[in-house]
């Protein structure tokens, strides 16, 4: 039992070391070579544009839900004007970056892991190596960078859609005054603490998801089971990593 735990923690440590090495290789590739703009654009399309519907829809729904829940509590204290602040702060500081990251991990991260794992299975990465092309440079780096680029943009869109959803429910459904909703939101959201904090989180999560998805695909077994394991692994490990990372970021940022 204890032996098993020891062994398992060693395995985790080994993976952490390898991920760090892998991250270093990606960074070296991104710094060292002329950017593969065409491939990055294609990957931004796959990861970003294709994630847009799910992110926007979730944003509207989450914002609306927050308004509904917040209203029932606030109205007891006669503070329904503060609804804007509640929706704004929770969406910007926490839900926006975290939920976007979880959605993108499920939607784009898993797709990237599956694509790279399939390339391992069908020897496409070995094919690149035999052409003296580094797969980390040619396939992995553009995808990791694309996720890093896409995450803050999608988080921004998620937040705007969530605020719209929240505003819509509050003003249209619950009869809160639109002006005071916006004023309370604008009054409580701070640029440095909330907006910058939010996008630092989104960028961190983007890097994390990009790294986990590409790494998990890259090390997958060259079988069909390997592809599915890579996909599942990316979603599970990626989501948990995002939540843990969020906890520590909140701690460092000073809640």
């Amino acid at each position: 039992m204890i032996e098993n735990m020891g062994y398992r923690s060693l395995v985790v440590l080994e993976h952490l070391g390898k991920i760090a090495q892998f991250a270093l290789r990606i960074v070296v590739c991104l710094l060292g070579r002329p950017y593969r703009i065409r491939r990055i654009v294609a990957d931004v399309y796959d990861a970003g544009v294709l994630s847009l519907p799910v992110v926007c829809l979730s944003g509207v729904v989450v914002g609306g839900t927050l308004s509904l829940l917040g209203y029932t509590t606030l109205v007891r204290f006669g503070a329904e004007e503060a609804l804007g602040a509640l929706v704004g702060l929770s969406v910007i500081r926490e839900l926006g970056p975290v939920l976007t990251a979880l959605l993108v991990t499920g939607r784009a991260g898993s797709a990237i892991a599956a694509e790279i794992a399939t390339m391992v299975t069908t020897e496409q990465l070995d094919g690149l190596r035999m052409m003296s092309v580094d797969p980390v440079d040619f396939v992995v780096s553009p995808k990791a960078l694309a996720l890093l680029i896409v995450m803050p943009l999608l988080a921004g869109l998620f937040i705007v859609f969530a605020l719209m959803g929240g505003y819509g429910v509050a003003v249209g459904l619950l009869g809160v005054d639109g002006g005071s909703f916006m004023a309370s939101m604008e009054g409580s959201v701070k640029f440095w603490n909330d907006v910058i904090g939010s996008f630092s989180k989104a960028i961190t999560f983007g890097a994390l998801t990009g790294l986990i998805a590409t790494y998990r695909g890259y090390i997958s077994e060259p079988t069909a089971a390997g592809v599915s394991a890579a996909t599942t692994g990316t979603v599970v490990v990626g989501s948990v990593a995002i939540l843990i990372c969020d906890f520590f970021l909140n701690g460092f940022w000073g809640v």
Partner: peptide, 23 residues
Amino acid sequence: ERELFKVRDRIGMLFQGGALLDS
């Protein structure tokens, strides 16, 4: 890997499934 790239410049390889990049 870097030294291998030099060697591989002189080698062509045809994989069983073709290994063409499908993107």
